[in-house]
Design a protein around this nucleic acid. Structure first.
Lengths: 339, 339
DNA sequence: TGCGGTCCTGTCAGCGATACCCAAACCCCG
DNA sequence: CGGGGTTTGGGTATCGCTGACAGGACCGCA
């Protein structure tokens, strides 16, 4: 709380009786400083309460020590897992993560990307493949590796580590059809905003049509991301307007769980009367009664692959853009009629 | 992906035919630049794809434009709400948030705090009131406002915005005792690590003893934070070893929900046979069947108050340390025997 | 003893922006 | 039309650290 100026390397140098440059070297891993000198410097630094100033270091060396990451929300187990995979993978190289969240809004994403680029990250990882034009331009001109995740964009900006949200839902539709179900509904958010949710709905409609089935059982439950409560409300509407529905695919496990509770409140048996599937393999789906059939997109693996890719790209000279697909997996559990 | 050097203000100055200093002024809000000059500069900047370099700006002006925040986990609705309250409150002043997570480990917190301080934030907000000695020293010497949250530490480092975890649980114990329950258990994490959880357990034991009741029905469910699954396992153990338990208080809504599902799997009726309470007012507690009795600690309010406090402290000269208490509220719902 | 090689440490300059100081241009009014 | 005040823009010197280069000390070996 005191306001005297914080000490600098020059202060340490004075105390330790060396030059500032030697102090600088003492703080670097591989620098050549004798053990005695280094210890004296470290001790002097501790004594006067020195804290390294990475602002100055970054400016002078023209290298920051972090990677920028944007995710739609900090409070989502899936994206948290991706961030975890990223930070674990980047830790070995001493790279930090600078995290920002977009609230599922590409205009907010644009603002965030600009803010992040001002700090000159070594690379940037964004969630999703849809961006404002200006955001695309900013990323293209940033002169650093760009990685889009959680999607397989048609026209990638740089590298990609992701999967097709549409295809994943198609697999789920195929599964239900294979069970003999025909009247299948989809609960998701409103059309705009969460592009991954929109892709999932698009995949649902395409898959249903491909099977020659009615693809109009669509419930829009509000602005993405939709909550458990909104999932419950959507299920209420579905049961009232299309009571003969045999299965429902929800845009996420959270809304699927909400839908499940609504069935429980109404005494509608799951999966006997209606089957429910979610997306994301959140913990709640594994533990709920009945457990939730869902899709595991391997969020941690996405982060780990992205981290490995960043390290490769930062090492080697600029290669072509890489696209890495992490294939999601169907998890068949009780709510879908399996056990 | 191209690697030519990014443009600087000097480049803009050349294009726009003004001095670098004027370019700098054009990018500041209140600076005195004529509208014509400013527009020409903004246009030149857009044309050549300039992105402001906050590294240089921060170094020269000795002011960063952000506040550092540490939270235990980026996948927790409570802390996410606090961060939201913080960023909303800080936005008006143009302050960004630099977020880091500690994984509920005070040693990891120490490393994180050092990393964050290296970037010279304007202020720092930490979750919890227990830290390593070195972390305390770092914070004390940082020369910036320090705010501890989600706790009421006995010996605060600087300012505080929080509540007593122990007292909150005491209220819940009193509630159950008022209902005539005597055999009350507590499910939490192992003793070390998550200090808020530890405080809740301590509060439970103290409250039970104060009521003259047996305070030994304690289940330790693993390293904090404990998951739904761990909550379920803990409930299984509780039902097997102390089947006459009348009520159980869980360290969080997530573990409480896990405990509830275990009861459902075993056909143990909640709340008739055993009442369950959680902590945190997560969405799952509002929507589960039965809904969960819990405690709302007003996480968003904590963030909002912390933000307001930061703005006040940064404005005015260093006043004394402030302690703001945000009192939690009991939410009596179905799982606790209310409706 | 002399020489190349290695290790350690010092000097100097500059990363990109801006605080500070000052000058020119402009304005209003008597 | 001149004087004082305001607005607008320029020049210079850093902020704290580190890349590049130089040089001294010390070593082993011929």
């Amino acid at each position: 709380m005191q306001s005297r100026k914080p000490p600098t390397m020059a202060d340490i140098a004075r105390v330790a009786g060396v030059s500032p440059m030697t102090v600088s070297r003492a703080f670097k891993r591989d620098a050549s400083v004798s053990a005695a000198t280094r210890n004296a410097i470290i001790k002097a630094a501790e004594d006067i309460g020195y804290v390294f100033d990475s602002t100055a270091s970054n400016l002078r060396s023209q290298r920051s020590d972090f990677v920028a990451v944007t995710i739609p929300s900090i409070n989502n187990a899936n994206f948290a897992d991706t961030v975890r995979g990223l930070s674990e993978g980047l830790k070995e190289r001493g790279l930090q993560i600078l995290l920002g969240y977009t609230d599922y809004d590409i205009h907010e994403e644009e603002r965030l990307i600009e803010q992040l680029l001002r700090r000159r990250p070594e690379a940037i990882v964004v969630t999703g493949g849809r961006h404002t034009d200006r955001a695309r331009r900013l990323l293209q001109n940033a002169g650093i590796p760009v990685i889009e995740t959680w999607d397989l964009p048609k026209d990638p900006i740089g590298h990609v580590v992701g999967f097709s949200n549409a295809d994943a839902v198609k697999d789920m539709v195929a599964h239900f059809v294979g069970q003999g179900k025909r009247k299948i509904a989809f609960i998701g958010g409103d059309a705009d905003g969460d592009t991954r949710g929109t892709d999932r709905r698009t995949g649902f409609v395409a898959a249903m049509k491909a099977q020659g089935l009615d693809a109009t059982r669509l419930i829009a439950a509000g602005r993405p991301p939709i909550s458990m409560r909104e999932g419950a409300d959507a299920m209420a509407r579905l049961l009232e307007t299309m009571p003969d529905t045999e299965a429902v695919i929800c845009v996420s496990d959270l809304s699927a769980f909400g839908a499940l509770t609504e069935c429980q409140r109404r005494g509608v048996s799951v999966p006997a009367r209606i089957a429910i599937a979610g997306f994301g393999d959140y913990e709640i789906g594994a533990i709920s009664v009945p457990s939730l059939t869902t899709i595991n997109p391997f969020p941690h693996e996405i982060g780990a692959q992205a981290a490995a890719l960043i390290l490769r790209v930062l090492d080697g000279p600029a290669q072509g853009a890489t696209v890495i697909t992490v294939k999601p997996e169907l998890l068949l559990r009780e709510s879908g009629g399996q056990r």
